[in-house]
Write a protein that binds this DNA or RNA. Structure first.
Lengths: 188, 188
DNA sequence: GGTGTCATCTTGTCAATGGCAAGATAGGAT
DNA sequence: ATCCTATCTTGCCATTGACAAGATGACACC
């Protein structure tokens, strides 16, 4: 129950996922250890296995949660520019989720829960492209627009998180992302 | 530096890096094991430590090699479109190097050898942007052009490698990348 | 209240890994 | 011929992931 040292934790699954996010944000997915998560949650070293099976199971749950959060973040965007900025903002604010989501070797990408959440996020992304004006030269190819938009925001977010960008870019990812996206869709 | 005469092994350092590339291409950087690499090279489990210190040392060498290969690949490009296609092509053909290069939590990103090679690659990338025509609306901001170009090709390459793109994109990364890049610089 | 059932969590164990220390070996330099 | 140094080996330990078997408590049912 609440704060007690009882045999049962209360919400161990949630606590383990939260601890995993913290560890990944600090040291990356490679530093993740089920035993360390168990220690942080105050349970025995084998407790996580019951909820997630193995390490890949825990990361599968984290990835699914990430795609759901991404779909939610994209859902509140007004236009494509907003949508792109929201994508980058999500990557920066939910860095741990984002880093796992696009690393299929870390989890079971074919799991049902992941596939469902991924589709939700994909739909939200394409909805932004559908809102583009019609007079543009590439208006005849919405999938192409979507691919280009996804590529540029995903690339910017990845480079930002990797610390690969020069200092000149500044320290505001939203503003910098907006400038980059505007180059792809100047008219909007 | 690397005398290629007959040591106990011949050229263990090179053999270990090659084996690492193979393992990473098959199963990702997380599946990398120094002992496994030693077994593949036919040496004892502690032999790799002498050449690279530890796991991070080996990946540092791999990252530096990767940035050098990238600089070389970009150097042969005629214009910015070629340069972008070469970037994606490099990521696909040298998947293992690429996956390590932009994961600073796996290696020592501040190592001198890495910094030098990274600068070479960065210069090659900016050289492509300098070749853009002058009449464009964004011609006054070459760094912005470079950031947008880098973002879109890096994002496309990352999504391609992650297997995140829909089948509709096809199986030719160079052709698909060209279409995407053309949207960012339509006039070229 | 008593009982059974089942998800939850614990203890115990094993093979594999990374990293360190100390020793063995070879190929050249003197 | 002897030394020297880089290269590689053997031995060891703490940590980890995964599995097996047992302990505990929440909850339904009577």
């Amino acid at each position: 129950m609440t704060g007690t040292r009882g045999y049962h934790h209360g919400d161990l699954r949630r606590a383990l996922l939260a601890a995993a996010v913290q560890v990944i944000e600090e040291s990356g997915p490679g530093a993740l250890s089920l035993r360390d998560l168990a220690r942080r949650a105050g349970v025995s070293h084998a407790a996580p296995a019951h909820h997630f099976g193995d390490k890949a199971g825990l990361l599968t749950a984290l990835a699914a949660e990430g795609f759901d959060l991404l779909a939610e973040a994209l859902g509140g965007a007004a236009d494509l520019l907003d949508s792109g900025v929201a994508y980058v903002d999500f990557a920066v604010r939910h860095r741990a989720h984002f880093e796992v989501m696009f690393r299929p070797d870390l989890y079971r990408a074919d799991a049902e829960e992941v596939a469902v959440a991924r589709r939700r996020a994909g739909d939200a992304l394409h909805a932004g492209v559908a809102g583009l004006p019609q007079g543009r030269p590439t208006a005849a190819d919405p999938p192409g627009d979507a691919l280009a938009a996804w590529s540029i925001v995903h690339g910017f977010a990845t480079l930002w998180l990797a610390g690969a960008l020069p200092e000149r870019v500044g320290d505001d990812p939203r503003a910098a992302a907006r400038d980059v996206i505007r180059r792809l869709f100047p008219k909007e």
